[in-house]
């Protein structure tokens, strides 16, 4: 029984990390329809930003979260403004462009700060473990869980309770009608992309103390993020949350019973089969066409 609870908690932790990484992609892919292959590199930039703030400015991880969000969001804004907005309605070119941006970011980091693994310190206050349902869990993992739920909540409020969110939803339904009502679609898109990039950066910074920081760390995350978003259903934030935790429990559980190699294969296979029969994903937002 203990083992079972332990494994459920582990799955929640894996799920929360998946949610952190997928949230930004869910916004960008779900609302703007942009397949952003540079998403992993935004995650990577966030991790490197954490390293820079820690090593050169002496800032702890928690203190540097807001600046990291702003820095990576600014980066995303620049890329939307000067690359992607010029490729409106050309989805294939957008995929190529974001892929290219990703490669350039990777190499830029490699050339400027070198390719060795970097070290980001675990916040000292969170370096112990604590009791959850009688199970000893790393405090930092609990913190990640809370952070991912909080970021989801903030994103949901932003989309559903603010003017920018309303404008964005209007644009998603019909861009030209929205524009005729005086909504500046370009500006809203740039802000949305920047927000998604900022979230990715935060995710990178938050996972860096548990994992490793290297120029090509993003490649793994972008695959995970796409699996979450595709399984959850495009345009459905709640679907992203559900699918992150489903995938977390599933891969954690199979890894415990078998091993991580098998878990990876089975999870991928399950998603492929599911997409075959439900191409829209598990959850779909009802939108009047």
């Amino acid at each position: 029984m203990d083992q079972f609870i332990e494994q459920i908690v582990t799955g929640l932790s894996i799920g929360s990390i998946l949610l952190l990484v997928a949230l930004g992609l869910s916004i960008i892919y779900g609302s703007m329809g942009i397949i952003n292959l540079a998403h992993g590199e935004f995650v990577m930039l966030g991790a490197y930003a954490a390293w820079v703030f820690h090593t050169y400015l002496g800032l702890g991880l928690l203190a540097s979260l807001v600046p990291i969000f702003l820095v990576v969001a600014a980066f995303g804004w620049v890329i939307e403004r000067y690359v992607l907005s010029l490729l409106n309605n050309r989805p294939l070119d957008t995929i190529l462009a974001t892929w290219g941006v990703g490669i350039m970011l990777q190499q830029a980091v490699r050339l400027s700060v070198g390719s060795e693994l970097r070290y980001v310190q675990l916040p000292p206050a969170l370096s112990d473990s604590m009791d959850v349902f009688g199970i000893s869990v790393s405090s930092y993992r609990v913190f990640l869980f809370v952070a991912s739920i909080a970021l989801f909540g903030a994103t949901w409020l932003l989309m559903n309770r603010t003017t920018v969110g309303m404008k964005l939803r209007a644009i998603i339904q019909d861009r030209s009608v929205a524009a005729s009502f005086g909504i500046n679609a370009k500006r809203v898109y740039a802000l949305t992309f920047a927000y998604g990039a900022g979230l990715a950066g935060l995710a990178g910074a938050l996972v860096s103390p548990l994992k490793s920081v290297s120029p090509d760390m993003g490649t793994g995350y972008v695959v995970d993020a796409f699996m979450v978003v595709v399984l959850g259903g495009v345009q459905s934030l709640a679907g992203t949350v559900a699918s992150a935790f489903i995938l977390g429990e599933l891969s954690g559980g199979i890894a415990f019973l078998q091993n991580d190699t098998v878990a990876k294969a089975i999870v991928l296979l399950a998603i492929v089969v599911l997409i075959r029969f439900r191409p829209e994903g598990l959850f779909t937002a009802r939108v009047r066409a």
Partner: peptide
């Protein structure tokens, strides 16, 4: 005896197994 994929970075299930 267990093998994880190259580049793997999530060891929480492995750690559970080590505990048990």
């Amino acid at each position: 005896e267990e093998y994880v994929p190259l580049g793997h970075s999530e060891f929480s299930s492995v750690i559970n197994k080590i505990r048990s």
